[in-house]
Design a protein around this nucleic acid. Sequence first.
DNA 1: TTGAAAGCGCTAACAC
DNA 2: GTGTTAGCGCTTTCAA
Lengths: 337, 337
Amino acid sequence: MSRRTGVPTLEDVARAAGVSRATASRVVNADERVQDATREAVLAAIRDLGYSPNLAARSLVTRRTDTIAVVVPESDERVFNDPFFAGTLRGVTKALALTELQMVLLIGSPGDGDGRLDRYIRGRHTDGAIIVSHHANDNLWRSVAEVSLPTVFLGRPFAEHPGLTFVDVDNVAAAALATRYLVDSGRKRIGTVAGPADMSAGADRLEGWRSVLTEHDLPADAVELGDFTVAGGGDAMTRLLAGHPDLDAVFVASDLMASGAMDAIRASGRAIPRDIAVVGMDNLELATRTLPPLTTVVNPVDEMATQAVAMLLAQLEGGPILEPVTMPTELVVRESA
Amino acid sequence: MSRRTGVPTLEDVARAAGVSRATASRVVNADERVQDATREAVLAAIRDLGYSPNLAARSLVTRRTDTIAVVVPESDERVFNDPFFAGTLRGVTKALALTELQMVLLIGSPGDGDGRLDRYIRGRHTDGAIIVSHHANDNLWRSVAEVSLPTVFLGRPFAEHPGLTFVDVDNVAAAALATRYLVDSGRKRIGTVAGPADMSAGADRLEGWRSVLTEHDLPADAVELGDFTVAGGGDAMTRLLAGHPDLDAVFVASDLMASGAMDAIRASGRAIPRDIAVVGMDNLELATRTLPPLTTVVNPVDEMATQAVAMLLAQLEGGPILEPVTMPTELVVRESA
DNA sequence: TTGAAAGCGCTAACAC
DNA sequence: GTGTTAGCGCTTTCAA
């Protein structure tokens, strides 16, 4: 055992097993061409010494870190309060648990003030990245492109760039699905609480809502933006009702915002769905617990995360950058609309 | 720039700046004794080349990884669904953001079936660890002790061991506080939905509840165990009511379980707090949204996480292992009791 | 099937 | 203040 730190090295293992370091390394890395007897000896030494490879040393020569970054350019508050992110992280964690890869979670404010995320990416400290919740003004896409870091976006990135791939739902279609349901149930004055304009999910869902209203010659002017939080949804709804007291329905671009919006609607003295029908999006567990339970569009975060990891792994194994994947959605009808 | 990978090394920087690798290294590591002009030249080269240190190479020589493990021996499901863990991770993330340390999140089932967590710890792949939600039968404490990995437990570990330190609330006192409040408000037949017996938070809160009842000569036989989930709390409450239909109050060892328990109580046709008073523990945001809002004991996860990180940092900087810290709690009275 | 040896990129001890 | 040099622990040719 190494005299200095007490942590056994491969050298120590080799000596204990009476073989060379190269052979010991082969055993550690499951190389075929090692005689069974030799392998046994080395494995025994590993057990006895409690050997564990020094990852830094390995990384230095293999030029792989065996980690992938999960980048979320949002505040810690949001990341750890919003069930959408919880679902995403759960999905990624689950998918990654089947591999040898370790997840490195990088959280940073949108816009990335001090450039921490950017520097980490440009430093190529991980083998690849999954970028969630991308905003128009953070240049993460540029960074990954410039250093050719294998990356999959979870949610379509705002920028178009050859080689940028992603997995997402068709947010335009999802919002259209929700809005069409409201139209079909006879609602005539349909507003929306949209997501941030600097995120594709925000912009696309707004467009889906608008397209259906236009298609039916209904007014598409009742729009307020929220920030994908409960409070933001409540505030937006309050403004919406103030500006358009005749609303009889609203499509809210996320369940979290819908929860806040429903509180605001009730606070205004209106009944759901009698006076105002509400449809959300995400289908969080929360949607079953609102009053009344929320009709919403499924956002299959778990499957999306699995898909994103699979696409990234394919790239890491040397495959080509796969085409973007769009997951199907569906409407879940409960009692709010 | 290195001809092979396209990633610039310190050697490249040194050459570009016309200095030795050692001097370039000094600039990168903010060593004082470098002439201003030299420093400028090196910094310029770093900028031009887009240099970023190879962490593996640095780690190999410094014998530090600049990462700390946050170990949660629970399923991904629980970690990413339970707001208690979200709060903990948020606190740790926030505290770590002020340092140079990167968090490595290690999630694994209790009991640690395949030993992944254990191996990671024993491999000393991080400079230190914060262990959350420790169970009696996982031997994480033994592993950190055997490899002398600087560690702080978040929540008192089940095992006593010299050198094991932790931050926690006084769970006995917290449960006693809740139970005493119920006694003082005239309740006579007080049950409890306790946490898992293999966790100190479970055992201690049960003991606190029992001590107060015994002290007041009240029966302390109405106990059911839950698993700190909503469903588990509901099931336990249902059993409790079946076995003890005369209950007029219950202390539930977590807000999440309390939420489930309240559903079960309502389902049995009883009113809260008229027929049965309920006190929870944690003071999650959820507690403000139950019907009726939940009276509960504060579990200051954010402050605990901050404290744990501070204690770990002190150890990493070479200080002694600090004494365990117990944070204060308080009762938040809402409408459920 | 095994071993010898080179070298990954960096820091730190030492010399100047 | 700066440069030279050794060496961290590992994988991977290359040769035997």
